[in-house]
Every structure is written in structure tokens, then in C-alpha cells.
Amino acid sequence: MKRGFKKLTNEAILPERATKGSAGYDISASQSVTIQPGEIKLVPTGLAVQMEQDDVMLLMDRSSNPRKRGIVLSNSVGVIDHDYFPNEFMGMFTNITDQPVTIEAGQRIMQAVFVKYGLVDDDKAEGQRTGGFGSTGEK
């Protein structure tokens, strides 16, 4: 497999594009999660993604999230590197309302867009990923 999603849990929903013209694959929550006002919380997807070495998957907020649901992706754009596989990728959301917000299992919460990237000529990166979410740069 050169690029594809892998279900890690039975509750995970394999992402699909809504139309032929869609750039993004709709990503759904695999578990119900309640986010308190002002709270930042990881929302499980139950998915891993396999990509080629020069791929990155960008997680983008759904345009309806802030207005209709009162949530936003906390880091604006999530970056999932090709060497993150086989770890589960998640969405990090902030509740921007003054009431608890519940994301239901199966609810579409973000979009995934694949992008090829380049490197500078004198790139010297030699590190190896040793963990999952937020693990690079840790000692």
C-alpha cells in the first residue's frame, strides 16, 4: 500500500471524499467526547494512515465546526508525518462556547488532505520517531 487509511478499532470509519472535486477526506470521531468550555481535548479517530516518504497529511477543520458546533481545531492545521504510522492520529479540538459540546461517535469532525513536500538540498535530518502524538523533540 502506498497511501491509505487503516482501521485500528471497530468503531473507526474509513474516510471518504464527498465529491469527485473534493480535496479532503472526511474524518469522523470514533468515540463520543464531551469538551468543556475553553477546554482542549484530543478526539480519537481509530485510524492510522500510511503514506509515501514524501507525503504529509494535513488535518483541516470543517468549515461548519465553529459556527454550528462551537469547536475549532486547536492547532489550526494538524500535520501527520509519513513516519507517524502505525500510530492513531487524532484531532485536537477547543470548545469556543460557554457550554459543554459533545462530539458524537461517527460525527465528521475534520478533513484530511494529502500533500507532497520537498526538502532543502542540505537537509540533515537523521532522527527516528519514537512515539505517537507530540513525540518528536522529546528526550
Score class of each variant (00 low, 15 high):
residue 1 M to L: 14
residue 3 R to S: 13
residue 5 F to M: 01
residue 5 F to G: 05
residue 7 K to F: 12
residue 9 T to V: 10
residue 10 N to R: 15
residue 12 A to M: 11
residue 13 I to R: 11
residue 15 P to G: 14
residue 15 P to H: 01
residue 17 R to T: 12
residue 17 R to Q: 12
residue 18 A to I: 01
residue 18 A to W: 11
residue 18 A to R: 15
residue 19 T to G: 01
residue 20 K to H: 04
residue 20 K to S: 14
residue 22 S to C: 10
residue 23 A to N: 14
residue 23 A to D: 13
residue 27 I to G: 05
residue 27 I to Q: 02
residue 30 S to L: 01
residue 31 Q to T: 11
residue 33 V to Q: 03
residue 38 G to D: 01
residue 38 G to R: 00
residue 40 I to W: 10
residue 40 I to E: 09
residue 41 K to W: 03
residue 42 L to S: 07
residue 42 L to C: 07
residue 43 V to R: 00
residue 43 V to S: 10
residue 44 P to F: 03
residue 45 T to W: 02
residue 45 T to Y: 00
residue 46 G to S: 03
residue 48 A to H: 05
residue 48 A to F: 04
residue 49 V to T: 02
residue 50 Q to V: 03
residue 50 Q to P: 07
residue 53 Q to R: 10
residue 53 Q to K: 14
residue 53 Q to N: 14
residue 53 Q to Y: 13
residue 54 D to E: 15
residue 56 V to M: 04
residue 56 V to S: 01
residue 57 M to Y: 02
residue 61 D to E: 13
residue 62 R to Y: 03
residue 62 R to T: 07
residue 63 S to L: 08
residue 63 S to H: 08
residue 64 S to D: 08
residue 66 P to V: 02
residue 67 R to H: 06
residue 68 K to E: 05
residue 68 K to Q: 12
residue 69 R to M: 09
residue 70 G to L: 05
residue 71 I to A: 03
residue 71 I to Y: 06
residue 71 I to T: 15
residue 71 I to H: 05
residue 74 S to P: 07
residue 75 N to L: 02
residue 75 N to F: 07
residue 75 N to V: 07
residue 76 S to E: 11
residue 76 S to L: 12
residue 77 V to M: 10
residue 78 G to R: 10
residue 79 V to P: 06
residue 81 D to K: 01
residue 81 D to L: 03
residue 83 D to F: 13
residue 86 P to V: 04
residue 88 E to S: 06
residue 90 M to T: 10
residue 90 M to D: 14
residue 91 G to Q: 12
residue 91 G to W: 01
residue 92 M to Y: 05
residue 92 M to K: 03
residue 94 T to I: 13
residue 94 T to C: 04
residue 94 T to A: 10
residue 95 N to W: 00
residue 96 I to K: 04
residue 97 T to D: 02
residue 98 D to V: 09
residue 98 D to A: 15
residue 98 D to Y: 06
residue 98 D to C: 09
residue 99 Q to T: 09
residue 101 V to Q: 12
residue 101 V to F: 05
residue 102 T to P: 05
residue 105 A to Q: 14
residue 105 A to P: 05
residue 106 G to T: 02
residue 108 R to I: 08
residue 109 I to M: 05
residue 111 Q to N: 08
residue 113 V to N: 09
residue 113 V to Y: 13
residue 114 F to K: 00
residue 116 K to M: 12
residue 117 Y to H: 06
residue 118 G to F: 06
residue 118 G to M: 03
residue 121 D to M: 09
residue 121 D to F: 07
residue 121 D to S: 11
residue 121 D to I: 00
residue 122 D to R: 04
residue 123 D to T: 09
residue 123 D to V: 07
residue 123 D to F: 14
residue 125 A to G: 09
residue 125 A to Y: 15
residue 125 A to F: 14
residue 125 A to S: 15
residue 127 G to H: 12
residue 128 Q to L: 11
residue 132 G to M: 10
residue 134 G to A: 05
residue 137 G to R: 01
